[in-house]
Write a protein that binds this DNA or RNA. Structure first.
Lengths: 156, 156
DNA sequence: GATGAAATTTTTATGCC
DNA sequence: GGCATAAAAATTTCATC
C-alpha cells in the first residue's frame, strides 16, 4: 500500500499544493528549497505513483445554492452488496459521500441540498431505493471543520 | 447569499476546474466555447466573489498512510458553544470534518487514522476533552463515494 | 538518481477594439 | 467578449554532483 515512502520533500510539496494547487513550480520550490524543474519532476512522479490523483477547485457551497446538509443513515434489507449500494447512491448529484459502516446502520450517506424541501425529496428518493429498509436523517446545523484533502499522516 | 446567480457559462467553467484545476484557460475555454482571456476574467471574478475559495490537490489517503476512517459522535456536557467545539477539534490533524447536528448527538466528527490503534488513540483524546460527556464511534468499512467538491446545484 | 542552469515553448496577464 | 502583445511560467535539454 506504501510502495515507496514519501520523503520529507515530497510531503512538503504536497502540503504547499494542498494549500494552493495553482502555485507555480518556482513558488513551491521556494517554499521547499528546490528549483522549479526539480519540483515539477517530483510532482510528475507523485502523479504517476497515484499519490496525487488530480487537482480540483474549492468552492463555497452556499454560493452554489447548497444551503442544507445532512447525514442520512440507511438500513438495508437482507444483505445488499456494496457495489449495489454504490451504483445506486452514485447517481445522486446531492450525495457528497457514502460509506458502508460497522454497527446497526449499513450505510451512511452525506447529502447536500438546496433547502429542507429539497433534502426531504432526496431522502424520499433514497428511501424508495429497493434495497433500503429504513432511513434516519441527521441535519447538519453548523459545519465547524471541512478539510477533505488528505495530508501526509503525522508520524507515529 | 446568492448576490448574483451563476450563469451557465460560469457553471460550466467550475465543472471543468473541479475535474482538473490545472487545466489551462485555453483548455477550459475550448470546453465552454470561450477565449482564454474571457475564461481568466470569469475565473478571477469567481474568486473575488468568493465562489472559488482556492485550488487544491486530490490525494490518495492510503498512499499517505491513512488506512482507517471513522465517524465519532460526541455527546457534550451541559451546553458547549460551537466555537469551543471547533477550537478543540480543529487542533486534530486526524479530523477531516466536524459538524454540529440535530438529534441526541451534539457533534459528528469524521476522523482519519493510520490504523485501528491510532484511531483508538484519537478517540481517547477526543473523549478526554473537557466538554465531552461520551462518544460513540462507527468505523468506515468501505468508502463508496467521495465527492468533497461542491458543484453547481441542479435546477429545482 | 536527482539536481540546477539555460534554452525553448506555452501560458498568463493586459491593453485595446 | 475577442484579439494582439508583453511578461511570466512551464517544459525540455543538458551538464553536474
Amino acid at each position: 500500500m506504501d510502495p515507496e515512502r514519501l520523503d520529507p520533500l515530497d510531503q512538503a510539496i504536497l502540503r504547499v499544493l494542498a494549500d494552493d494547487a495553482r502555485a507555480t513550480f518556482a513558488q513551491v520550490g521556494e517554499a521547499v528549497s528546490l528549483s522549479a524543474p526539480a519540483v515539477k519532476r517530483r510532482v510528475d512522479r507523485l502523479r504517476e505513483r497515484g499519490v496525487i490523483r488530480g487537482f480540483t477547485v474549492r468552492l463555497d457551497p452556499a454560493a452554489l445554492g447548497w444551503h442544507t446538509e445532512a447525514f442520512v443513515e440507511i438500513f438495508c434489507q437482507g444483505s445488499t452488496s456494496p457495489a449495489t449500494m454504490r451504483a445506486a447512491v452514485e447517481r445522486y448529484a446531492e450525495v457528497v459521500s457514502a460509506s458502508t459502516v460497522t454497527g446497526d446502520v449499513d450505510l451512511v450517506v452525506q447529502v447536500r441540498a438546496r433547502d429542507m424541501r429539497h433534502l426531504e425529496e432526496v431522502v424520499e428518493r433514497l428511501a424508495a431505493e429497493p434495497f433500503v429498509a429504513r432511513t434516519r436523517s441527521t441535519i447538519v446545523l453548523s459545519a465547524l471543520v471541512r478539510r477533505p484533502e488528505a495530508l501526509p499522516a503525522p508520524d507515529a
